[in-house]
Amino acid sequence: MPLLEKEFLKRLERLEIAARKVRRGVRRGERISRRRGSSVEFADHRQYSVGDDLRFLDWSVYARLDRLMVKLFHDEEDLAVHLLVDTSRSMDYGEPTKLLYALRVAAAIGYVALAGQCRVRPALLRAPDRIESPGYLRGMGSAERLLGFLERAGAEGPNGLRDGLRRLASEVRPKGVVVLVSDLMDRDGVDAALSALARNPGDLFAVQVLDPFETDPGIEGEFRLVDSEDGSRAEVSVTPEVLAAYRRRCGAYLAAVDGACRRRGIRRLETTTAVPFEKLVLEVLRTRGLLR
């Protein structure tokens, strides 16, 4: 089954990436750069100075104000969009799995980016610090590659978020938009991982995908809970008291993740696999400023 339906892809083509920080690209794209350039979109005037291209003198202003002003235009640049997907075994949980949900989110954002002539670099974060990526993709012709790459991704290994992001920050140092899709669940905390993410200069997004069970388990009885990542077992007598304590702990953890993201300028979006994927992309991501 494909990650995204064709009908949905058509709807995505009407969206574009909304980057707060516009970064210089390597190719001309559809993005309007703050660099004043040679595109047709007027940006501003400035006083003429010797050496300026006379073609950009605004003669109408000169006629009205008797002053030589040069017309400035936005330069159009391509935008790099980095899609980082956490593929640890903890993501392989739920129905649908968090990983599938995360891959669909990444696929949707990537598709929107390709449609907007952005360079898209999908990457799977594997433990310990391995990054699987097909490299930069550009143009709608790469959409199939993007989707195919993401469709083949499977969950494996423990959480490699921190080391993967550190390696990414040191080797790639991505600019543009960086979107991390993960459950951000780590018994050692995600501060280190978020710090590594924050070392990147681009617009930083963290889409935290959780399973409803994680926020509200709704179970009661005798359980031996096996950690999907390290296989450790916890024998738990789940009672209303324990359940309430779990909810408190979970809420506190998510609040801590949120605080850590805020401190590092990372826009965090929390969702669960219970939220319809289309609604997430078409509504939530737009309202949260990642898409428009």
Binding site: S90, M91, Y93, K98, D183, M185, D186, R187, D211, F213, E214, I219, G221, E222, F223, R224, L225, V226, D227, S228, E229, S232, R233, A234, E235, V236, S237, T239, E241, V242, L243, A245, Y246, R248, R249, C250, Y253
Partner: peptide, 26 residues
Amino acid sequence: QEERVVPTNFLWAQAIQDTRTAAVLR
């Protein structure tokens, strides 16, 4: 006792810790 795989169980461990005294009595 039902065995169940969960994404991670560290929050459960913390919850058990929080309710340890009550758990002993329980």
